[in-house]
Design a protein around this nucleic acid. Structure first.
Lengths: 171, 171
DNA sequence: CCAATTCGTAACCGCACTGGCTACAGATGG
DNA sequence: CCATCTGTAGCCAGTGCGGTTACGAATTGG
């Protein structure tokens, strides 16, 4: 597998929900019902977002989570870094043979390439904000008729992101 | 965590080794000693590379693995796709609430962004070949003095890849 | 044909991460 | 005080990964 955990996806969902209910604090239970998970899972993720300064939380009656910034000042890269503590995207085998040229040098070379690839990925996330996500969701909710048509194919043209993103993968 | 498994790194190591010993078949045991792992682990990865047509393998006395293509015709994206069967880089929560606008539309929006990010990462891998890796390793092995200096910092300028890669992450 | 070598693969293990769940202490406001 | 809500610890089942052993199948050489 080795997919990035769904915490990023859930965190974006949470923030989009908070942006939707911008005025009032929202409880973890309410958020959990939208995500369809356990309130504790939501609180764990909200805790990470709080540590990153993206939301503010109040306990007690009438408490809950609220956005700490404007939705257009929260990028998906912020979210990614808030909930995914891992610094390296690719694992590299720890201890190759030190006696051969390959073994003693491959790690540095691989780390360089992998780091560049990771940065390219983060570059895409950096250019999408929670406000963008909210707009996309709203647009999709509006035109329900063909809302999920563009799911076909290999993530297709991603028409939904036109104007927001540069071409991205030139593969 | 959620890092991409070290199979990619090991597979590149294996292919770099085969490119180094271009003429003769190399046994899984020999490769394993360079990677410093178990021969079965190597055979599993070599099997995936064989399925992808990157190497050819012969059993029996004098057998082993050999490159099936020139090193400059094997990209790290080929390797990535050969050993990492996962099609999606980011997991998305499977079943958000269908009654609210956010829950019923967030998955498609997230999948679009995540797919674009994934493609950007693959675009970097596509531009590095096994031959490039071999050259980098050789260069590092030659000038041992300052070979690992450029490891400092946040993957720094990646001077080693200058001329091979476009700027990559514009974050 | 037989023996040595090597791959291919199944089976099992320990480790680590993930998400879901319960439980409870602590903070907050009426 | 009390109801509400967060924060967190703790446990569980599921899953993936890497390591290891074991054995059958293929190939080469005598």
């Amino acid at each position: 597998m080795s997919t990035i955990s769904s915490r990023v996806a859930v965190a974006v969902h949470v923030l989009a929900y908070l942006a939707w209910r911008r005025d009032e604090p929202v409880t973890s239970e309410r958020i959990a019902s939208s995500v369809n998970t356990n309130p504790v899972v939501v609180r764990r993720i909200v805790g990470a977002l709080r540590n990153a300064g993206l939301v503010s939380v109040q306990p007690g009656v009438g408490g809950g989570a609220q956005l700490a910034r404007e939705p257009d000042h929260i990028s998906m890269l912020d979210v990614y870094r808030a909930v995914e503590e891992k610094e390296e995207l690719f694992a590299v085998h720890a201890d190759p043979c030190r006696n051969c040229d390959i073994g003693s040098n491959i790690r540095a070379v691989l780390q360089g390439v992998f780091c560049t690839a990771h940065q390219a990925m983060q570059g895409v996330l950096a250019q999408v904000t929670i406000a963008d996500i909210g707009h996309q969701v709203k647009k999709a909710a509006g035109g329900c008729a063909g809302a999920d048509v563009h799911l076909a194919g290999d993530c297709g043209e991603m028409a939904a992101l036109d104007g927001v993103l540069a071409p991205g993968g030139r593969a």
